[in-house]
Design a protein around this nucleic acid. Structure first.
Lengths: 194, 194, 194, 194
DNA sequence: ATTTAATCGAGACGGTACGTCTCGTCTTACT
DNA sequence: AGTAAGACGAGACGTACCGTCTCGATTAAAT
């Protein structure tokens, strides 16, 4: 019977969070600042979100995360495809906005593990999707061993990219090449008996 | 002529930081709480450290970081050595104290990039050292290709471990095995033309 | 066609005000608390009353005020009659409920002068009535000078009683006796030339 | 050892309270408003005063209350002296500032009975002083009966004046005359047997 | 042996933000 | 049209820390 929740207020808060995030950094974002920027009262925020982390979660889960929209090419050269894609994704995560988002994601994970897991999953899922799809193709044409676990490979990329973003680095070409090279061929000498 | 800086006060503050870190988490540590716990006045803290991050830095740089003291075995089986070592290191980073420290390290990196780089280097250096030494041995006996960059491999381990610690996970045996397996042999099919 | 105002809701609000008044004190009574206690929506209160003071006014004007129901005896001893009556009235105003009501009355007077005047009149009118009646009798039998203004005397009693209630005091026998004595005989020495 | 309390801040708060009191009325005075007006932080107020009432108490106890500075003339005509003095005192309590102070005094008494008693005593004491002094003189020259209790008379004036101030009234000449007349001569008929 | 100057503890200060409370207005569905 | 329910913008509440600023007391080297 009561007046329904104002969708306009909700969107204004989430938008204010997204803006404040890249402008000030997560830990400098204040609820009061958010309320003022969104033209909303504090109580309206506290009524609907239990914490700053929850607002961030909703803001990010509802929008798009950097890295997700970079497509993995599907030519017949797996290594080149991976290099091109990982370079692009790393660059996408490494620009100003990407670094701010990555750091916020990390900060909120340190505060609220469960929400952090959800956001990480949201970030990792499309990457895992791309890698799985690409590796399945490579397996089907016999380029890749059938027993390879695509998730492990995808996690490697995610871990590497997030580790770099945390430090505000964009991975260089050499690093990308070296990483992809190792993942492709491993370290074992070709004539080794293992 | 003036009274020299009190080493006792300095140690008390650093110790209080280390304790507070594992008990409350980095963002909940307050300068006032630190001062009270250390039996020191706020001014004494502000006189010697510019920020909370700086105290953390000094506290961690002066002590030992988890993971550094885990030795990489040097038997003649590289893969088994890596698995044993990475399991142990991951476990060392994954206990309560390790996770708290890792998260603090990540949080402070997000705040103060320069200090974060120093702390990361402090964490990564011994790992890089172990991996370099072990791979050099493997190369010398022909188990590993000579063109492999030990740093890239070491970074893989660090990135994976810190990514796991951030999420409060301890890497399971399967994940360790899979990761080491991929790093050892890559993904390329043995009969692939590359 | 339209639904008429709910008399039940009105009574519930007024009753809740009377209860809250003695339990919390006027300034601690909140409209929201009143609405909750009365099982009524806030809007219903705001539709019918412009302010908390107005609710109080209606609640008190509709009920009985302490002190009004104490009859002034009409024996042939004026002084004894006044003492007995004023003692009883003062006690009636001095119990827990009486003090709460008197304070609320005073507080609302400080807020809304017009309403305060109305409530004061409601409190003072019966007292003035009693005193006028009793003095008229005394005048008629020649006990009291004919030029005495009964209103002034009545106001003395009201002022004294409200001043005592404000301070949470019940007037003692000596105070009542002294006051009545002075009002009866004044301060002038019997043999004074004036 | 720490920095001593700032007397300047204390005075600024008390002054701000005195100003706000006459401009807004006691219940509309907010701690935040006081802090802003005084150029002081909220914490400084909360550090030193437990409540708004306590600030008011200190502000009023430290300053002068209206009515106290009106001298009671000491000519040889007691009735004229009392009329002149009570008129002046009533006027002093009845101007804008006087009414605001009287109402604040009443409001705070309703909240904090002990403080209210102290403030009332502070208001009543000089009045009692004047009346006692004047009556003692009148007794010494045989104008007033020796058994008259000066406190009871003084309380009459205080009660009447505060009752009038509460309602925002200034007592008119007739009322003052009638009141003083009754107090002087009582109501008993001159030829009454009592 | 004094002087001198930076240290120390304690904690007051002006601020900012917290999370809660109530205000008075409004919007909705129900009766 | 009146009502219960409760969301809304507004703004004060009392608390926690921030980083800065006195204080008086302490403590070593330089007089």
């Amino acid at each position: 019977m009561p007046r329904p929740r104002s969708e306009q207020a909700r969107q204004a808060v989430l938008a204010a969070m997204r803006v404040a995030l890249t402008e000030e950094g997560y830990s400098s974002v204040s609820i009061e600042g958010l309320a003022a920027a969104a033209g909303v009262s504090k109580q309206t925020i506290y009524r609907w979100w239990p914490s700053k982390a929850a607002i961030l979660g909703e803001a990010l889960l509802g929008g798009s995360l950097p890295g997700a929209d970079v497509a993995l090419p599907m030519t017949d050269d797996l290594e080149t495809d991976l290099r091109a894609w990982f370079s692009a994704m790393s660059a996408s995560l490494g620009d100003a906005e990407g670094v701010a988002l990555a750091r916020a994601l990390i900060a909120v994970t340190a505060t609220d593990a469960e929400l952090g897991a959800a956001l990480n999953e949201k970030l990792a899922a499309p990457i895992r999707g791309w890698v799985s799809q690409r590796l399945a193709l490579a397996v089907s044409v016999g380029q890749v061993r059938a027993d390879v676990d695509a998730e492990v490979i995808a996690d490697q990329f995610v871990a590497m990219a997030s580790y770099a973003a945390l430090q505000g680095k964009v991975l260089g070409v050499e690093q990308v090449d070296a990483l992809v090279g190792v993942l492709m061929r491993g370290v074992v000498a070709p004539d080794s008996t293992g």
